[in-house]
Design a protein around this nucleic acid. Structure first.
Ligand code: SF4
Ligand code: SF4
Lengths: 156, 156
DNA sequence: CGTATCGAGGACATCCAATGTCCACGATAC
DNA sequence: GTATCGTGGACATTGGATGTCCTCGATACG
């Protein structure tokens, strides 16, 4: 089980944008330079965040990304599932239908206990992430991370 | 984020063995045939379960696998982490140390809020799985799955 | 003892999604 | 008009998951 590294990128970028929610848009170049990330690949994840309604993009010079909602209304789960998708990590392959003791498909309409247990764990995981907002992460960041100035390298 | 399919294989095999905890060992061949799984690859996962102390293996003719503990003392988490490992799905790459706003390593001894949030979610997930035993899964299985007879194709 | 059956474990080959790059396009500020 | 910026698709690369095969040691049975 492995989470895409893009989740870390996305969380850091969103938290960074949350430090100045109503400022000018921040370009993908500036965001990438903040963490020394590959710009074009980071752009893919930023696009996903836009599609999910977490970020809002502006084209043209002086364009870039900003939060689409106040940081109090963006949860860690929003960011994670924008990048990672919301599918359950456990994919049932219906192996109960195969092999010597195979159960006919007619009797497999309902998911079995095994998949229910895994689904419950997934939901516990989601609930934990849903309970934390980007605003809270921002407030609880260590000082040296929080005081980062995203405008330092911006043109002008 | 994707869970190895071996987890489903392992859970089903362990539950199957839990239906007759004190019977003769079941060979990997029989287990594979029960679900039409590739035998040698399933063997890898069974080995992992043995290394983790969930299963006990016996060599020689009439050998095979059986539970190392009563099913009441084996949790879904035991099976999952035996196969999948217990590492957190979120791997921190310390991107706060890189780039324009890089923080020096001396100030990064403690994990930041982002990784704490992810760690809490991981722990919620583990706690959910730790709360379910193989015995409970066995009891709650639908009848057509539970009544499977693992001896049907055994030699003799 | 010899032989057949079993698991342990390492050396591969294969597959596929994650990762990363590049280019053409439309939008916008100046 | 031009330079800057995001969008989206077409690639190439990489590493882990998947799957196979072979050798070895252990054991039941005669
Ligand atoms: S028994 Fe459960 S986990 Fe197994 S194949 Fe059926 S639904 Fe999936
Ligand atoms: S800020 Fe947190 S998630 Fe980001 S690199 Fe540091 S410890 Fe990891």
């Amino acid at each position: 089980m492995k989470l895409s590294q893009g989740v870390e990128w996305g969380l850091h970028c969103v938290v960074l944008l949350a430090q100045d929610p109503d400022g000018a848009p921040v370009s993908r170049r500036t965001l990438a330079q903040q963490f020394a990330l590959p710009e074009t690949y980071l752009a893919k994840h930023l696009q996903a965040l836009v599609r999910s309604g977490v970020l809002q993009a502006t084209s043209g010079p002086k364009g870039g990304f900003r939060l689409a909602r106040p940081p109090e209304e963006i949860t860690a789960l929003d960011v994670l599932e924008a990048i990672e998708g919301s599918a359950s990590p456990f994919v049932c392959q219906e192996i109960r239908q195969r092999g010597t003791g195979g159960v006919p498909p007619e009797e497999c309409r309902l998911p079995c206990t095994v998949s229910s247990v895994m689904a419950a764990a997934h939901e516990a995981w989601r609930a934990s992430l849903r309970g934390v907002t980007v605003a809270e992460i921002r407030e609880r960041l260590p000082k040296n991370v929080r005081e980062r100035d995203v405008r330092a390298t911006a043109p002008g």
